[in-house]
């Protein structure tokens, strides 16, 4: 019941969303043209995804790497059982 209600609300809210493939949707008007235009000039990297990932938003990716580092540490701490007290 809650699921159907939430779905109905979400479908109603999509009526205000931009159409699929619309080049003038708000998501692609704010900063992304600048990323596309300046990526070769500023970073010498033709792949805009890489330059945004590692250069313009490097701090974001650092946090990302820390997240998966933490996940691995949690998995090792929770599950690892050493037999006969042999450390690594």
């Amino acid at each position: 019941m809650i699921v159907i209600l939430t779905g109905a609300v979400l479908i109603y809210s999509t009526l205000d969303m931009p159409d699929w493939g619309d080049p003038n949707s708000p998501a692609s008007l704010h900063v992304s043209p600048r990323y596309i235009e300046k990526t070769i000039e500023e970073t010498a990297t033709p792949n805009a995804v890489t330059s945004v990932l590692a250069d313009y938003r490097g701090y974001d990716t650092l946090g990302e790497t820390t997240v998966i580092f933490t996940a691995a540490v949690v998995c090792i701490l929770l599950l690892r059982r050493f037999e006969d007290d042999k450390t690594l």
Binding site: P23, A27, S28, S32, Y35, I36, V49, L53, D60, T61
Partner: peptide
């Protein structure tokens, strides 16, 4: 910029 799709959501979703 209209020739290339928006790189920003790709980056966010990659992470």
């Amino acid at each position: 910029p209209a020739q290339y799709i928006n790189p920003l959501p790709h980056v966010l979703m990659l992470t």
